[in-house]
Amino acid sequence: MAIKLEMLRTFRVVAEQGALADAADLLGRTPSAVSMTLARLEENIGAPLFETDRKNRLTRLGEMILEEAVRATDVFDSSMGAIRRLTASTAGTVRIAAVPSIIATLLPGAIARFRFAHPEVRLEISDLDSASVRRRIRLDEADIGILSAAVDEPGEGVTVAADRLGIVYRTDGPIARALAEGEGAPSWSLLALEPLISNPLCSMVESPVVARLLEACNLEARNTTALLSFVREGLGATVLPEGAVPILGSAIGFVRPDDPPTRRALRMICRADRKLGPAAQAFWDVLL
């Protein structure tokens, strides 16, 4: 008799619950049926998976097989989810994970055009930092991701837009006063007037001033909402893209230094090993 996915799933639930009765309740089966499935699995393997009949402690072999059971059932569940989305054809759900600036600028128009052509499709939008967008795509928790990257950075995705990076500051703080009193083009050196609130975009700025401030920085945030809250509370200044300007709100200013001018690309990504479903592909084409 071959080892079946049902056996591995049953074994995983029993191992994770640590009790046969609890596992049976979770699986919607009787304890005797669960016990019989485990017995068939152990018969196929040729060795016990649990050290006692109470099923609360795994053997060393059981621990290793549990890792494989988790991997196998997770892959199967992920594939079933993908199949369900594909069989939904254009009438389904498209999951989009994007950085906040794209949600405030490019995405609303794309959504309006898409909904006009596909009113039956549900759109789920997540507001995340770039690292979280990548993670959602990798774990198949989003169909399409839109993230920030350096303009000259090779590799992933398709560039759909680009904009300038700049300094975000309180309009009644030291940077605002220096801008009001100063002459000439704004400089990244303005960041030295206030504590730096770092985020991954800061590393794109090729300025020795920013590099030095990053080394000494003791406050970091990756979420745009958190960054803006910190700036609004007077905790310092940070670097954000020009696309974030519409969501800055009151009491916060934005300036683009020219020493050097720094651009970031907005890139659209998806799983390279999995074809987009019809609805997701249609939204991808709209964004392009």
Rank of each mutant, 00 (worst) to 15 (best):
S148Y: 15
A178G: 06
R134M: 11
V160Q: 02
G145Q: 04
G182D: 13
A178C: 06
T159I: 14
R170D: 12
D172N: 14
A131V: 06
I197V: 15
E141H: 12
L139Q: 13
I125Q: 09
S189G: 13
A185R: 11
E156V: 02
L165K: 03
L191I: 01
W188C: 05
I137K: 03
E156W: 00
A149H: 01
A161G: 03
A142F: 04
L147A: 13
R170Q: 09
A142K: 02
R134T: 01
G166W: 01
G182N: 12
R135L: 12
S198E: 12
S198Y: 03
L147R: 09
D152E: 14
D127H: 09
A131N: 07
L128N: 02
L179D: 07
D143H: 15
R135M: 10
D127C: 15
E181N: 11
G157W: 05
L139T: 10
A161I: 00
L139S: 12
G166S: 06
S130W: 12
S189T: 08
P186Y: 07
V133A: 11
T171L: 15
A142C: 09
P186K: 10
R177G: 06
Y169H: 09
D129L: 05
A161H: 10
E141D: 14
D172E: 13
V158S: 08
I137N: 09
L190N: 01
R177H: 13
D143G: 04
A192E: 13
V168R: 05
L179Y: 10
L128G: 00
R177P: 00
G166I: 02
A178M: 08
L165H: 05
P154Y: 01
D163M: 02
A180W: 02
E153L: 09
P174L: 12
A180L: 13
I167N: 09
S132Y: 00
W188R: 01
I175H: 08
A178S: 14
L196K: 02
I175K: 09
A176E: 09
A162D: 08
L196R: 03
E141I: 00
E181V: 03
P154F: 03
V151L: 15
S148Q: 11
D172A: 10
G184W: 12
S148T: 10
V158Q: 11
Y169E: 02
I197K: 06
L128H: 11
G145P: 06
S148F: 14
L191P: 00
R170C: 09
L139G: 01
A149I: 00
E156G: 07
D163L: 04
G184S: 10
D152T: 05
G157K: 02
G184R: 07
L165D: 07
S126A: 15
A149G: 07
S187M: 04
V133Q: 04
A149T: 08
